[in-house]
């Protein structure tokens, strides 16, 4: 059981945070994590790093309400949103795949949430969000006409369209080329300002560039190591020696975590 030291940067007023208490997940008899506590900083971006297979995505899916107890998995724990239980209505979710529906135009994809809830969609807002991600000219196009980076930008617009205080992102930029990823980090960091964000990533530099706080999830069952709060505000200059030193620390911790896992395995 690992808590987070109480030194959060001042939260933006009015944006609630998320707390996880005593979360456990077993999958096919394996304890993925057990009795885990987590506090996400309100209105800030928290980045979740860890060796592959440690359960980062599982934790994110758990918070998103996508893991249900069944034959293979058993789930327990308490998820508090601003101190109140029941988070799901406050969450928007962005996955590694853009998950755009190929039969809808880009604009209709951005308005998917309203369609699914049977609400009238705010066309003007969707259109302006597409403008913010630089896709104004592609409103009427189908996703197949877009490049990978453009598709992920459309998915980002769809996520923002949901206008939820909490945004969960599961390696959203990992399938993109380096330059596109760099641009999208900047765009996401800017557009998600003020939202409580959890970003799962395997890229320490990405986390150091756009995260307010970095969490390392290691071990089996997984637990958090001491968090890292890089100095200054995102978007940080990735060429600064401070970040290089932090990146080295993170790499060291991740490597030793993997070696430990191998020694046990």
């Amino acid at each position: 059981m690992t808590g987070i030291p109480p030194s959060p940067p001042p939260a933006e007023s009015g944006t609630p945070g998320i707390s996880l208490r005593g979360a456990s997940l077993r999958y096919q008899g394996n304890r993925v994590f057990e009795d885990l506590d987590l506090d996400l900083l309100a209105g800030r971006m928290t980045c979740l790093l860890g060796p592959s297979g440690v359960g980062k995505s599982s934790l994110l899916r758990y918070i998103a309400g996508l893991t249900e107890s069944g034959i293979e998995a058993s789930v327990s724990g308490q998820l508090l949103f601003d101190g109140i239980e029941g988070v799901s209505a406050n969450i928007a979710y962005l996955a590694q795949q853009d998950l755009l529906l190929p039969w809808l135009s880009v604009l209709d994809n951005v308005m998917l949430g309203s369609r699914l809830r049977g609400e009238t969609a705010d066309r003007a807002r969707a259109s302006s969000l597409l403008g913010q991600v630089g896709l104004s000219e592609y409103e009427a196009s189908v996703p197949a006409k877009l490049s990978g980076g453009m598709r992920q930008r459309a998915a980002l617009a769809r996520t923002l369209m949901e206008d939820r205080p909490v945004v969960l992102m599961d390696e959203p930029f990992s399938a993109l080329d380096a330059i596109t990823r760099y641009e999208l980090q900047e765009l996401a960091s800017t557009l998600l300002t003020g939202k409580t964000t959890l970003l799962v990533t395997h890229d320490p530099l990405e986390a150091l560039r756009i995260g307010h706080r970095l969490l390392l999830l290691t071990g089996s069952p997984a637990s958090f190591e001491a968090p890292i709060d890089p100095p200054g505000d995102p978007l940080r200059d990735i060429s600064s020696p401070e970040l290089a030193a932090l990146q080295a620390t993170i790499m060291e911790r991740l490597t030793s975590a993997r070696q430990k896992a191998r020694a046990v395995g």
Binding site: L66, S88, A92, Y93, L99, L101, R117
Partner: peptide
């Protein structure tokens, strides 16, 4: 499955998910 996850998080009803996602796909 990713589309169904997305629909779930978006709070889509079973019926709307069927009409908007499962049938077209």
């Amino acid at each position: 499955p990713g589309w169904l996850d997305l629909a779930h998080v978006m709070g889509g009803s079973r019926w709307q998910t069927l009409v908007q996602i499962r049938i077209p796909s």
